[in-house]
Lab assay of single mutants.
Amino acid sequence: DAEELIELVERALKEGREIILLGVRITSEEAGKWFIEWIRRFL
């Protein structure tokens, strides 16, 4: 579910982890915020 995915992304970014989803590397909080917004819009 989308909320679970958002929580995972937020937690990983807070822990300083690198996330790779759909071939996109997300390493900064700014990118994470963009990704979370995208999830909310399309899922």
Results as ranks from 00 to 15, higher is better:
residue 1 D to E: 09
residue 1 D to H: 14
residue 1 D to L: 15
residue 1 D to Q: 14
residue 1 D to P: 13
residue 1 D to W: 15
residue 1 D to F: 15
residue 1 D to R: 15
residue 1 D to V: 15
residue 1 D to N: 14
residue 1 D to Y: 15
residue 1 D to K: 14
residue 2 A to I: 15
residue 2 A to Q: 09
residue 2 A to R: 07
residue 2 A to D: 07
residue 2 A to L: 15
residue 2 A to H: 09
residue 2 A to W: 15
residue 2 A to G: 07
residue 2 A to M: 13
residue 2 A to V: 14
residue 3 E to Y: 13
residue 3 E to V: 11
residue 3 E to K: 10
residue 3 E to A: 12
residue 3 E to P: 08
residue 3 E to H: 13
residue 3 E to L: 14
residue 3 E to M: 09
residue 4 E to T: 14
residue 4 E to S: 13
residue 4 E to Q: 13
residue 4 E to D: 10
residue 4 E to A: 12
residue 4 E to W: 15
residue 4 E to V: 11
residue 4 E to R: 15
residue 4 E to H: 14
residue 5 L to G: 01
residue 5 L to Y: 07
residue 5 L to S: 00
residue 5 L to I: 05
residue 5 L to W: 11
residue 5 L to F: 10
residue 6 I to C: 07
residue 6 I to E: 04
residue 6 I to M: 04
residue 6 I to F: 07
residue 6 I to L: 11
residue 6 I to G: 02
residue 6 I to R: 05
residue 7 E to V: 11
residue 7 E to C: 14
residue 7 E to F: 09
residue 7 E to Y: 09
residue 7 E to I: 12
residue 7 E to W: 08
residue 7 E to N: 13
residue 8 L to M: 10
residue 8 L to T: 04
residue 8 L to W: 10
residue 8 L to F: 12
residue 8 L to N: 02
residue 8 L to D: 01
residue 8 L to I: 07
residue 8 L to S: 02
residue 8 L to H: 06
residue 9 V to Q: 00
residue 9 V to M: 08
residue 9 V to I: 12
residue 9 V to G: 00
residue 9 V to D: 02
residue 9 V to H: 01
residue 9 V to L: 09
residue 9 V to P: 01
residue 9 V to R: 01
residue 9 V to S: 01
residue 10 E to S: 09
residue 10 E to H: 10
residue 10 E to I: 15
residue 10 E to L: 14
residue 10 E to D: 07
residue 10 E to N: 12
residue 10 E to C: 15
residue 10 E to F: 06
residue 10 E to P: 00
residue 10 E to A: 08
residue 11 R to K: 10
residue 11 R to I: 08
residue 11 R to H: 07
residue 11 R to A: 07
residue 11 R to P: 04
residue 11 R to Y: 01
residue 11 R to G: 03
residue 11 R to T: 09
residue 11 R to L: 06
residue 11 R to N: 06
residue 11 R to D: 04
residue 12 A to D: 02
residue 12 A to S: 05
residue 12 A to N: 03
residue 12 A to H: 06
residue 12 A to M: 11
residue 12 A to T: 05
residue 12 A to W: 11
residue 12 A to V: 11
residue 12 A to R: 03
residue 12 A to E: 06
residue 12 A to F: 06
residue 13 L to P: 01
residue 13 L to W: 04
residue 13 L to A: 03
residue 13 L to F: 07
residue 13 L to C: 15
residue 13 L to G: 03
residue 13 L to M: 09
residue 13 L to V: 08
residue 13 L to K: 04
residue 13 L to Q: 02
residue 14 K to F: 02
residue 14 K to H: 07
residue 14 K to L: 09
residue 14 K to V: 07
residue 14 K to N: 09
residue 14 K to W: 05
residue 14 K to T: 05
residue 14 K to I: 08
residue 14 K to A: 10
residue 14 K to P: 05
residue 14 K to E: 07
residue 14 K to M: 06
residue 15 E to G: 04
residue 15 E to I: 09
residue 15 E to L: 06
residue 15 E to A: 10
residue 15 E to P: 04
residue 15 E to N: 09
residue 15 E to W: 13
residue 15 E to V: 08
residue 15 E to F: 06
residue 15 E to M: 05
residue 16 G to H: 07
residue 16 G to N: 09
residue 16 G to V: 14
residue 16 G to Q: 07
residue 16 G to P: 03
residue 16 G to R: 06
residue 16 G to D: 02
residue 16 G to K: 06
residue 16 G to W: 14
residue 16 G to S: 08
residue 17 R to K: 10
residue 17 R to G: 04
residue 17 R to M: 10
residue 17 R to T: 07
residue 17 R to F: 13
residue 17 R to E: 05
residue 17 R to H: 08
residue 17 R to D: 01
residue 17 R to A: 09
residue 18 E to A: 09
residue 18 E to K: 08
residue 18 E to D: 06
residue 18 E to R: 09
residue 18 E to N: 11
residue 18 E to F: 12
residue 18 E to V: 13
residue 19 I to F: 04
residue 19 I to N: 01
residue 19 I to C: 15
residue 19 I to K: 01
residue 19 I to M: 03
residue 19 I to R: 00
residue 19 I to Y: 03
residue 19 I to H: 01
residue 19 I to P: 00
residue 19 I to S: 00
residue 20 I to S: 01
residue 20 I to A: 00
residue 20 I to N: 02
residue 20 I to K: 02
residue 20 I to V: 10
residue 20 I to L: 05
residue 20 I to W: 04
residue 20 I to M: 03
residue 20 I to E: 04
residue 21 L to G: 01
residue 21 L to S: 06
residue 21 L to W: 07
residue 21 L to R: 04
residue 21 L to N: 04
residue 21 L to Y: 06
residue 21 L to A: 04
residue 21 L to Q: 02
residue 21 L to T: 00
residue 21 L to E: 05
residue 22 L to M: 08
residue 22 L to F: 06
residue 22 L to P: 01
residue 22 L to Q: 05
residue 22 L to E: 01
residue 22 L to I: 10
residue 23 G to C: 07
residue 23 G to H: 09
residue 23 G to F: 12
residue 23 G to Q: 08
residue 23 G to Y: 11
residue 23 G to N: 04
residue 23 G to M: 13
residue 23 G to R: 04
residue 23 G to S: 07
residue 23 G to D: 07
residue 24 V to T: 05
residue 24 V to G: 05
residue 24 V to I: 13
residue 24 V to W: 06
residue 24 V to D: 01
residue 24 V to F: 08
residue 24 V to M: 06
residue 24 V to L: 05
residue 25 R to E: 04
residue 25 R to F: 12
residue 25 R to S: 08
residue 25 R to M: 12
residue 25 R to V: 11
residue 25 R to P: 03
residue 25 R to Y: 10
residue 25 R to G: 08
residue 26 I to W: 04
residue 26 I to F: 08
residue 26 I to Y: 03
residue 26 I to N: 02
residue 26 I to R: 05
residue 26 I to E: 05
residue 26 I to A: 05
residue 26 I to P: 03
residue 26 I to M: 06
residue 26 I to C: 15
residue 27 T to S: 09
residue 27 T to L: 14
residue 27 T to H: 11
residue 27 T to F: 14
residue 27 T to Q: 06
residue 27 T to G: 08
residue 27 T to P: 04
residue 27 T to D: 12
residue 27 T to E: 05
residue 27 T to I: 14
residue 28 S to Q: 03
residue 28 S to P: 08
residue 28 S to D: 07
residue 28 S to K: 04
residue 28 S to R: 06
residue 28 S to T: 09
residue 28 S to F: 11
residue 28 S to A: 10
residue 28 S to I: 09
residue 29 E to L: 13
residue 29 E to C: 07
residue 29 E to W: 12
residue 29 E to I: 12
residue 29 E to A: 12
residue 29 E to T: 13
residue 29 E to K: 13
residue 29 E to Y: 11
residue 29 E to P: 14
residue 30 E to K: 10
residue 30 E to P: 08
residue 30 E to L: 14
residue 30 E to F: 12
residue 30 E to R: 10
residue 30 E to C: 15
residue 30 E to W: 14
residue 30 E to H: 08
residue 30 E to D: 10
residue 30 E to T: 06
residue 31 A to E: 14
residue 31 A to Y: 09
residue 31 A to N: 08
residue 31 A to I: 15
residue 31 A to L: 15
residue 32 G to T: 09
residue 32 G to E: 06
residue 32 G to R: 11
residue 32 G to P: 08
residue 32 G to H: 07
residue 32 G to S: 05
residue 32 G to F: 15
residue 32 G to V: 13
residue 32 G to Y: 12
residue 32 G to W: 15
residue 32 G to C: 15
residue 32 G to A: 13
residue 33 K to L: 09
residue 33 K to F: 06
residue 33 K to R: 13
residue 33 K to D: 08
residue 33 K to G: 05
residue 33 K to I: 09
residue 33 K to E: 08
residue 33 K to T: 08
residue 33 K to V: 04
residue 33 K to S: 05
residue 34 W to L: 12
residue 34 W to R: 14
residue 34 W to E: 06
residue 34 W to G: 03
residue 34 W to D: 06
residue 34 W to S: 06
residue 34 W to Y: 05
residue 34 W to V: 04
residue 34 W to T: 07
residue 34 W to H: 11
residue 34 W to K: 12
residue 34 W to N: 10
residue 35 F to M: 05
residue 35 F to A: 01
residue 35 F to W: 07
residue 35 F to D: 01
residue 35 F to V: 09
residue 35 F to P: 00
residue 36 I to W: 12
residue 36 I to E: 05
residue 36 I to A: 06
residue 36 I to L: 07
residue 36 I to Y: 07
residue 36 I to K: 05
residue 36 I to P: 04
residue 36 I to F: 07
residue 36 I to M: 04
residue 36 I to S: 02
residue 37 E to D: 09
residue 37 E to Y: 10
residue 37 E to S: 06
residue 37 E to K: 06
residue 37 E to W: 09
residue 37 E to I: 10
residue 37 E to V: 07
residue 37 E to Q: 07
residue 37 E to T: 03
residue 37 E to P: 00
residue 37 E to L: 09
residue 37 E to H: 05
residue 37 E to G: 06
residue 37 E to N: 07
residue 38 W to Q: 02
residue 38 W to K: 00
residue 38 W to V: 03
residue 38 W to D: 00
residue 38 W to A: 03
residue 39 I to R: 00
residue 39 I to H: 00
residue 39 I to M: 08
residue 39 I to L: 14
residue 39 I to A: 00
residue 39 I to T: 00
residue 39 I to Q: 00
residue 39 I to V: 08
residue 39 I to W: 02
residue 39 I to K: 00
residue 39 I to P: 00
residue 39 I to D: 00
residue 39 I to S: 00
residue 40 R to K: 14
residue 40 R to Y: 11
residue 40 R to C: 13
residue 40 R to I: 13
residue 40 R to D: 09
residue 40 R to Q: 07
residue 40 R to S: 05
residue 40 R to A: 06
residue 40 R to L: 13
residue 40 R to M: 12
residue 41 R to M: 13
residue 41 R to I: 12
residue 41 R to C: 14
residue 41 R to E: 10
residue 41 R to H: 13
residue 41 R to S: 11
residue 41 R to W: 15
residue 41 R to P: 02
residue 41 R to T: 08
residue 42 F to K: 02
residue 42 F to I: 12
residue 42 F to R: 03
residue 42 F to M: 12
residue 42 F to Y: 10
residue 42 F to A: 03
residue 42 F to E: 02
residue 42 F to Q: 04
residue 43 L to R: 01
residue 43 L to Y: 09
residue 43 L to H: 03
residue 43 L to W: 10
residue 43 L to S: 02
residue 43 L to A: 05
residue 43 L to C: 15
residue 43 L to F: 12
residue 43 L to G: 01
residue 43 L to I: 10
